Amino acid sequence: MPKINGNEIRPGNIIEHDGGLWIAVRTSHVKPGKGGAFAQVELKNIRDGRKLNERFRSADKVERVRLEQKDKQFLYETDGMLVFMDTETYEQTELPADILGDRRPFLQDGMTVVVEYYDEEALSATLPEKVTCEIVETEPVVKGQTAANSFKPAMLDNGVRVMVPPFVGSGEKIVVNTETFEYVERA
């Protein structure tokens, strides 16, 4: 794995530090009046979510980790485990359902998910940015209310509540952003 200087750490970089894998959440470069400059880096542990603030001088060397990304197709869920199939080798793998976190309800049959691996360990899974869902419950459409810049709550077929524009009614399909849980457009 390549070693980089402490002042080259950028947000999103994954480094090996103190025997664990950490992702850089925020970095700021500080030049104090006395002494050498350093990078103040906020780190988050990939495995357990702990946070850490660390100072790295330009002379400090850290291991930058590159994760291997594989496309996996979701097949089914069994006993709290999600079963995925590798799209190239057709090999099936089971991952815990909590690997998706709060985005789990947006997972649909046959959906292609990007799973990031470190060695052979699956660390994270990323859903597509936009998913089509159906509205099962919302307030009825009221004529003349479309000009106002207001939103109303709606319940989706996967049990997630989102805010939608007033012209969208029950039974309609909409596109939802899986990262922000916001309405994007009608499907």
Rank of each mutant, 00 (worst) to 15 (best):
151 F>H: 06
105 P>K: 01
48 D>T: 03
15 I>T: 05
56 F>E: 05
146 T>D: 08
61 K>F: 08
58 S>H: 10
85 M>W: 00
148 A>M: 10
98 D>F: 05
145 Q>Y: 09
166 P>L: 11
10 R>V: 06
73 Q>F: 07
156 L>P: 02
8 E>M: 15
62 V>S: 06
101 G>L: 04
96 P>R: 01
137 E>F: 13
9 I>V: 09
9 I>H: 01
5 N>G: 15
102 D>S: 15
155 M>I: 08
118 Y>M: 02
5 N>S: 15
143 K>M: 12
41 V>S: 02
33 G>R: 11
101 G>A: 05
63 E>W: 14
92 Q>P: 04
106 F>S: 04
95 L>F: 13
37 A>H: 12
102 D>N: 15
173 K>G: 07
98 D>M: 00
30 V>S: 08
164 V>R: 05
73 Q>A: 10
11 P>W: 13
78 T>M: 11
30 V>N: 14
28 S>T: 09
31 K>M: 12
118 Y>C: 02
3 K>L: 14
92 Q>N: 02
148 A>C: 09
124 S>Q: 12
40 Q>E: 14
80 G>A: 08
39 A>L: 03
145 Q>K: 11
130 K>Y: 15
51 K>Q: 14
37 A>T: 12
13 N>A: 09
132 T>V: 12
75 L>N: 08
168 V>H: 02
174 I>E: 00
